[in-house]
Write a protein that binds this DNA or RNA. Sequence first.
DNA 1: TCAAAAGTGTTCCTTCTACACCCATGT
DNA 2: ACATGGGTGTAGAAGGAACACTTTTGA
Lengths: 252, 252
Amino acid sequence: MHIPSEQDFIQQLSIDCVIFGYEDKKLKVLVSTLNFNGNFQALPGGFVYQNEDIDDAANRTLKERTGISEIYLDQFFVFGKAARKNQNFLDELIRLNPQMPFDGKQNKDQYDWFTKRFVSIGYYALVDIKKVIPMKTDLDKSIQWCNVYELPDLIIDHNEIVSKALESLRLNLDKKLLAFNLLSETFTMKEAQELYESIFNKTFARNNFQKKILDMDVLERLEKKFTGAANKAPFLYRIKDKAKADESPKMM
Amino acid sequence: MHIPSEQDFIQQLSIDCVIFGYEDKKLKVLVSTLNFNGNFQALPGGFVYQNEDIDDAANRTLKERTGISEIYLDQFFVFGKAARKNQNFLDELIRLNPQMPFDGKQNKDQYDWFTKRFVSIGYYALVDIKKVIPMKTDLDKSIQWCNVYELPDLIIDHNEIVSKALESLRLNLDKKLLAFNLLSETFTMKEAQELYESIFNKTFARNNFQKKILDMDVLERLEKKFTGAANKAPFLYRIKDKAKADESPKMM
DNA sequence: TCAAAAGTGTTCCTTCTACACCCATGT
DNA sequence: ACATGGGTGTAGAAGGAACACTTTTGA
């Protein structure tokens, strides 16, 4: 376990990442279970090196946990309440992990670093879940995908961070073409619809959804996908111009 | 001049405020000219005390410069490029101000504090310009309102911060009822329209604007305003429920 | 031939936009 | 009376929602 305090990080500033994936018709978030006694679950997070853009720090954190880079990433909010401290969580952690000597010099530095008040920049990411092999760091006991609507209790204010991330995602979904970042390269219209339904947690009319998406003029229709089912084969679609999908509309 | 480094601030974290006002049919931003030789102009900004919410820090900065509190304030973006340093600006400032001894202990600490890389949280505020008497701190030579479309060159990335603030304001204007924060308590429909036009930098059709605004059902019509002009007297309006005007719609 | 699921079209309704007209006011 | 600017109505265009119908597929 590294000791952030002895490295060249910006103090009292952290990054928390809400990594969205989509699987089994459910919108999911990558959650880490910390490698300590007690059931501590948290969002993947990290700190910012002195010579690192905050966006790069978020990307680094993502790459550590998902193995992929060049994924869609959006800064959505800063969590900066004065009461926002790891103190309570750490004290509980220490209580449940008496075997850990927290009085040695090294652990003391670590304790001092972590118990300060932190301002955390929230990022959300959209990944193709099939391309991700969730990876543990030495801080994680395990790391897993959780249904966003059935999240366990996370440490500090991480549940609130997820709520705010989901809210931002919904607001940005139509402005940009973000959603398709969560799907494989090719997909059927039904898959796209189910994705939207899981993000907004409501259903859409099949025909109107198709019209709306196709009217955006960002998808190209490929060959049909024969599934072997006794019904009409759906077309596969693909983003016309992937680079365009991550652009935001320009103003001013 | 206080020495931030010796006070209990969070290091390498700053707040920059884009304070919007509206006057003479123009959208304006409060800009400070720094109290040094050389024409250094900057956004009002500040730092965050260890025991202070970042929102409170932004409010404090605003109160210092405008004298009013309880104004609308919105966190809109974090500027965190690694290259984002005061270094160049400070070196230039020192070059132009040789009379300032920057080698004494006190000034050295100050130099060390300021030349570090800063992550800055951007806030924008909307104020009734008639209620504000721009106030200098000891860092300011003067402080004045500048037309947002004719801003001078500001230090570091402050011009970029204003652009981003304006972009966010435009996006949020219809969702919330922010705009009326920029007007006096009572106003005519024409005044409201001119305000919208200055924010979006384009014109709107008179009748449709009125319909759109009234359909929002947030204004109450008061008595007519007799101006002495040879035409029909316009009605005055007022926000029905001021508290409501600062609410954002809830989701999830 | 049939059920299931995909694709398409049509109607209705709401909303936005442009144009027109009427009304109050002071000279 | 009339010029000026404020208030309101309406027709047409555009966009969204609900419904119905047709097509394709494998059993």
